[in-house]
Simulated scan of single mutants.
Amino acid sequence: MGFDQYHEPADELSAETRTFARMCANLTEEAEAIGWYEQRMSLEPDETSKAIMADSLGEEFKHFSMDLEFLLRKKPLWRETARGILFQDGDIVENGEAAEAAAGSGCGSGGAADAGGSVSASSLGIGSLKGKGL
């Protein structure tokens, strides 16, 4: 991946924003690894090899979960939305819509961040385009 993870000049980003970007990259990489192990295990005929892969898969899921928890601790609006979706019964999409509405209009994007990386409840207004057929 290299150091192309930033979409803005790295030297202009706060240390907090760079750390956040690294954790987002970690989360993505762990999710990819989980997918790879699932694919390999679905085809692997050797039971010992499959058991080793399953053990590795568990580690990747643990890391994914730790990365996600870190990010949710940094973005309270994300956490609020996630609480309405994760570990809930019922329709996932309906739970997501209800959680987003309950958390406020800025939660989908994480809100706007100021120069110090603090999140406000403001929104880019993208959610207001929903269903407009644009």
Rank of each mutant, 00 (worst) to 15 (best):
K50C: 15
G131V: 03
L71Y: 03
N95V: 02
I126N: 12
E60N: 05
G125D: 08
I92D: 08
K75F: 15
C24W: 02
E100F: 15
G104S: 07
L77N: 00
A103M: 10
K75D: 15
F64W: 07
G131S: 01
E12I: 04
R79Y: 00
L86G: 03
E80C: 03
A99P: 00
S65C: 04
A115F: 07
E30D: 05
T48A: 11
A54N: 12
A103Q: 11
F70Q: 11
A33C: 12
E60G: 05
I52H: 08
G90N: 13
C107G: 11
K130Q: 15
M23L: 13
T17C: 04
L43A: 14
A54M: 11
G127F: 07
V93Y: 02
I52F: 11
A112F: 15
G58M: 15
K62F: 01
I92N: 06
E12N: 09
R22G: 08
A25F: 01
S14P: 05
A98V: 02
M23W: 12
M23S: 05
E59G: 10
R18D: 01
L57P: 04
E100S: 12
S42W: 12
K130N: 15
Q39A: 14
A51H: 14
D4Y: 06
D114C: 05
G35Y: 09
G104T: 10
E94Q: 12
S105G: 14
V93Q: 05
E8Y: 02
D114P: 09
I34F: 14
S56W: 14
D89W: 06
G117H: 01
A99Q: 00
G125C: 10
S49Q: 01
G106P: 05
R73I: 07
S105Y: 14
G104M: 04
H63A: 04
L124R: 13
N26P: 00
A15W: 09
S65Y: 03
I85T: 12
E97Y: 09
S128N: 11
R18H: 02
E30K: 07
R18K: 04
Y6M: 11
S56E: 15
A102V: 00
S122R: 10
G106H: 07
F20Y: 08
R18F: 01
M23K: 13
S49A: 02
Q5H: 08
V119G: 03
F20R: 08
K62N: 04
